[in-house]
């Protein structure tokens, strides 16, 4: 899928949940986990591993959390 589009979507999720501190990053990761189809999640994780261009700080942290099997709870 278009990675720019996925990055924009991840950043939008982050922007709307960033105010929910201190759990924002966990909430963003949960959102990605619950609503994004696996190939979308894989693609954004791969993108992060390739530098994560365009991802904002919270989105980046959330994708990192999503990639971490310990935190990858449904």
């Amino acid at each position: 899928m278009n990675i720019e589009r996925l990055v924009e979507m991840a950043n939008d999720i982050a922007a709307n949940q960033a105010a929910d501190r201190p759990s924002a990053v966990v909430l963003i990761a949960q959102h990605l986990r619950r609503f994004w189809e696996p190939r979308m999640r894989k693609q954004i994780i791969d993108h992060l591993h390739n530098g994560g261009a365009g991802l904002g700080d919270e989105a980046r942290a959330a994708v990192a959390l999503l990639a971490d099997p310990i935190h990858n709870q449904k």
Binding site: M1, N2, R5, F35, W36, E37, P38, R39, M40, K74
Partner: peptide, 19 residues
């Protein structure tokens, strides 16, 4: 399947990448 599926806009995106 216990994983969420594609939404309509995701389906369209996925169609364009061939998956």
């Amino acid at each position: 399947d216990d994983e969420p599926g594609l939404r309509i806009p995701n389906m369209l995106e996925a169609a364009l990448d061939g998956s």
